[in-house]
């Protein structure tokens, strides 16, 4: 591997801004000063790595990993994809963590009071580590839409939260996955913190009939892109990205 430089600057017009008043909680939780720009130092170009030994055999199976008396209730789905960097290279060994509500839109969390029922066989957390080609996969239940106290009648689209560790702390990312064709994507104040439709589309998983397990589970494909890294092509040799 050639000597590598810092990670590409984040495009903060592609990401959501800090202050997005339609998402009310952001109003008092957004910094007012500009961020201090800092080309990566080694403090940001390193990061924790999690071995495959971290992961148990059911950690990526949300239908079974909290099951007490049977499988979780709801639409059985596979969520799979690759973790890539901006150079379109796979990111192997990435820790992918996810969490979600159950089929009725109810989270298993002590501060959650929505009246939809808890599923006794569904916890809602999963994790995986990408393989040598950057691939991950989960088996889960498609989450339901969920009302929340923002506007008087705001509902979140069906979504799965994703947390990613790449190879550097500079790549640390938390995001949300939405489902192709859901009309609620386009009326959500959290989705609309992202101003570019193409960026929202990047968070929308597509139905993949070819990856579906017949008579068992539908499949959605969701690729995730982390920051890419410069090659120091003029200091060393012309290898490029």
């Amino acid at each position: 591997m050639s000597d590598q430089g810092s990670y590409y600057q984040r495009d903060r017009s592609w990401h959501p801004a800090a202050l997005t008043p339609q998402y009310k909680t952001s109003v008092l939780r957004s910094p007012q000063y500009p961020l201090l720009s800092l080309d990566n130092t080694i403090s940001e170009m390193t990061g924790p790595r999690f071995g495959h030994g971290t992961i148990g055999p059911l950690d990526n199976d949300l239908i079974r990993n909290f099951a007490k008396t049977g499988d979780a209730i709801g639409q059985r789905i596979i969520v799979y994809g690759r973790v890539l960097d901006e150079n379109a290279r796979p990111v192997p060994g990435a820790l992918v963590e996810l969490w979600q509500a159950n089929a009725g839109g109810r989270y298993r969390h002590k501060k959650e009071t929505y009246l939809a029922a808890i599923d006794p066989n569904f916890g809602g957390c999963g994790r995986a580590i990408t393989d040598a080609e950057g691939r991950y996969w989960f088996r889960t239940i498609k989450p339901g839409a969920y009302p929340w106290p923002n506007g008087v009648n705001d509902w979140r689209p069906a979504h799965i939260h994703f947390s990613l560790f790449g190879h550097a702390f500079a790549q640390r990312l938390i995001t949300q996955m939405y489902f192709e064709g859901d009309p609620m994507i386009w009326q959500c104040p959290i989705v609309s913190t992202i101003s570019d439709k193409a960026a929202i589309d990047q968070l929308t998983a597509v139905l993949d009939r070819n990856a579906t397990l017949p008579m068992d589970a539908l499949a959605y494909k969701f690729d995730i892109v982390l920051r890419g890294r410069r090659s120091t092509m003029f200091e060393n040799r012309m290898e490029g990205n």
Binding site: W14, P16, A88, G126, T175, V191, V225, L226, G228
Partner: peptide, 22 residues
């Protein structure tokens, strides 16, 4: 350009603990 765009961030939300510290 053949580079990809980074996946945009979204809030971790109030129930981040389910995934991070279950």
């Amino acid at each position: 350009l053949t580079t990809l765009k980074e996946s945009p961030s979204q809030t971790a939300g109030p129930y981040v603990h389910i995934g991070a510290t279950p």
